[in-house]
Design a protein around this nucleic acid. Structure first.
Length: 268
DNA sequence: TACCAGGTGACAG
DNA sequence: CTGTCACCTGGT
């Protein structure tokens, strides 16, 4: 599938901290290739500027990837709003990360992954997720495995300290037990609005406000949720000592958060 | 050695 | 309700 898409940059999305399993295969000057396991499928993408080649059928694109990449949202409308406003720092952030999109990833994978992410660093988060995937998930390709369904994960795996889960292991084990005994929980979460989903998520041990907001934003598609982690907290204090005005971005604050986060974390 | 990393739960007061 | 603090673990 070849498509021309604007406001879409694979490397920027990958480095914006919302996904843990993207793999950059090879990148020449003008061309990048990514390999993305999600929803039990494997997608390879070649990007040259705003030209994309996706390794999937039209049908699979419509069923999975179109929603995954938030294709139906017009990011140029957000761009217009940003440049109509007076927030110069936000304008710079947008210029720097104009190819960022908010992914709509698998709910179960997001809950599990962001629970691991608490008080943790990215390399170790990735390593834990990769180990669990390769041990429990279906094989998609050489050395690439799907993120496992909850019933594919033996609870005994949480006794294995080589996964590097640390004190989060019992939280994850309890999460699996809860999902196994409440098989409709995930699908009901997906039907809820932001407030209800957030409330239901933080009832789980190991999910606090930050993790719940990440799940809402990157899994459930609630772009109004605005996760505040240590980076965002610092950046807000530094650039917005009097508080940030998000009134013109009602219902899409999370997208603004991504631009700010990416700019702060990656610009020199 | 001490401190930090995309936080959170269990406690004081 | 707001403020502390320990917590697995690998990296500097």
């Amino acid at each position: 599938m070849k498509l021309v898409l604007d406001n879409f940059d694979l490397a920027q999305i990958d480095k914006s901290g919302q996904c843990f399993r993207w793999k950059e295969l090879d990148s020449l000057d003008e061309q990048v290739t990514y390999c993305i396991p999600a929803f039990g499928k494997l997608l390879k993408i070649v990007q040259k500027g705003n030209e994309f080649d996706f390794s999937c059928s039209k049908k699979e694109w419509d069923n999975i990837w179109k929603s995954y990449f938030d294709i139906d949202r017009d990011y140029s409308l957000i761009e217009k709003k940003i440049f109509k406003g007076k927030d110069e720092h936000l304008k710079n952030a947008f210029k720097y990360g104009s190819g960022i999109r908010i992914l709509k990833q698998d709910t179960w994978e997001m809950i599990f992954s962001f629970m691991i992410s608490q008080n943790n660093n990215i390399p170790r988060i990735r390593k834990s997720i990769e180990m669990i995937s390769s041990r429990c998930g279906k094989k998609l390709d050489e050395d690439i495995y799907a993120f496992p369904e909850v019933y594919e994960i033996p609870l005994s795996i949480f006794d294995d300290t080589s996964l590097g889960l640390g004190y989060r292991a019992p939280y994850l084990r309890e999460l699996c037990e809860f999902v196994l005994t409440h098989p409709d929980w995930i699908s009901s979460l997906e039907k809820m609005g932001y407030d209800a989903a957030y409330a239901s998520l933080i009832e789980r041990k190991g999910i606090g406000c930050k993790v719940a907001n990440c799940i809402c934003l990157f899994g459930l598609g609630h772009v109004e949720s605005f996760p505040i982690d240590t980076h965002v907290k610092k950046l807000l204090a530094k650039h917005y000592p009097d508080g940030i005005d998000l009134s013109s971005f009602e219902g899409e604050a999370g997208i603004i958060q991504q631009y700010l986060f990416y700019y702060d974390l990656n610009e020199k």
